[in-house]
C-alpha cells in the first residue's frame, strides 16, 4: 500500500520538476515549485520524518513561495528566451544525475535496522532520552534542543546571518519610521524627515511601500540613493 503512495508521489514529483523546467511563465513556475515542495513534504511524511515534512511544508511551500512571488513583482512574469541551446546544460544535468543514481546503489536499504546511522549514537538517544532529558516523547526535540544543541545554535546563527545578508543586499536607504506627530502616530516615508510633516499637512504617509502586488509606479517616490 505504502509503495503505491510512494510511486504516485514520486511520479507527481518528477512531472512537477519537468513542468517547472519547461515553464516560461514564471508565475506558473513559482506555483509549481510550491507544489513540488508540498509533494516532497508528503514523501518525508511517508518516510516517517514528520518534523522534516512540517518544515518543508511551512518553508518550502509557504514562505519561499511568497518570497518568490515578491520577487516576481519586481522582475516581471515572463522568462526571456535563452540565447544558447540547451544541449550542454542538459548533458551536464544528465551526467550528474546518472552519477547520483549510481551512488544510491551503494547506499544501505532504507530503514534497515543495521544501517550505520542506527548503530552509532541513535540507540543511546532513543533508550536514554527518557532518563537523561526527561519526559519528552518526541525524541527529535530532545536530540535537536538538548543532545545536539550546539548544532541548533549554529543553525539559528545561520538563519540570523541570512537576514543580515539579505538586508545588506536588498534594503536600499532608510526604512519607514514611525513618528509621533500632532497627537498621533504616523509612518514616515523613506527619504522624508519630521520637518516634511510640518510643511506638508496632508502627509499622512499611509502606504509608504505599496503592496506586494507591486503595480509599477504606484506611489513611486524617488529617493536619491537608488
Amino acid at each position: 500500500m505504502i509503495e503505491i503512495v510512494d510511486i504516485v508521489l514520486l511520479i507527481l514529483l518528477a512531472t512537477t520538476g519537468v513542468a517547472v523546467a519547461r515553464q516560461r511563465n514564471l508565475f506558473a513556475a513559482v506555483m509549481l515549485a510550491g507544489i513540488y515542495s508540498l509533494l516532497s513534504a508528503g514523501l518525508f511524511m511517508v518516510m516517517d520524518a514528520v518534523d522534516v515534512a512540517f518544515t518543508e511544508a511551512a518553508v518550502g511551500a509557504g514562505i519561499s513561495t511568497v518570497l518568490l512571488l515578491g520577487t516576481l513583482a519586481l522582475v516581471g512574469h515572463e522568462e526571456q528566451k535563452p540565447k544558447h541551446t540547451p544541449i550542454l546544460p542538459l548533458f551536464v544535468v544528465l551526467v550528474t544525475g546518472a552519477i547520483l543514481v549510481y551512488g544510491t546503489s551503494e547506499l544501505p536499504p532504507f530503514g534497515a535496522a543495521d544501517n550505520p546511522a542506527h548503530l552509532h549514537v541513535a540507540p543511546h538517544y532513543i533508550e536514554e532520552s527518557e532518563h537523561e532529558v526527561g519526559h519528552i516523547p518526541n525524541v527529535v526535540t530532545s536530540v535537536l534542543a538538548s543532545y545536539r544543541s550546539y548544532d541548533t545554535m549554529g543553525e539559528t546563527a545561520v538563519i540570523f546571518t541570512a537576514m543580515v545578508g539579505v538586508l545588506l543586499l536588498l534594503s536600499r536607504g532608510p526604512l519607514p519610521r514611525r513618528v509621533f506627530h500632532e497627537g498621533r502616530w504616523m509612518t514616515l516615508r523613506p527619504g522624508t524627515t519630521r520637518e516634511d510633516l510640518e510643511s506638508d499637512s496632508d502627509g499622512e504617509g499611509d502606504d509608504p511601500l505599496g503592496d506586494v502586488s507591486g503595480a509599477p509606479g504606484t506611489s513611486a517616490e524617488e529617493d536619491g540613493d537608488g
Partner: peptide
C-alpha cells in the same frame, strides 16, 4: 533549557522570516 532555546529559535526564525519578506516586498520595480 529546551524551553528557552526553543523560544530563542522561535523568536529568531519569526524575525528573520518577516524581515526577509519585508526586504523583498519593500523593493519597488
Amino acid at each position: 533549557g529546551i524551553l528557552l532555546v526553543e523560544l530563542g529559535v522561535l523568536i529568531t526564525v519569526f524575525g528573520v522570516m518577516v524581515a526577509l519578506f519585508y526586504a523583498f516586498a519593500g523593493r519597488r520595480r
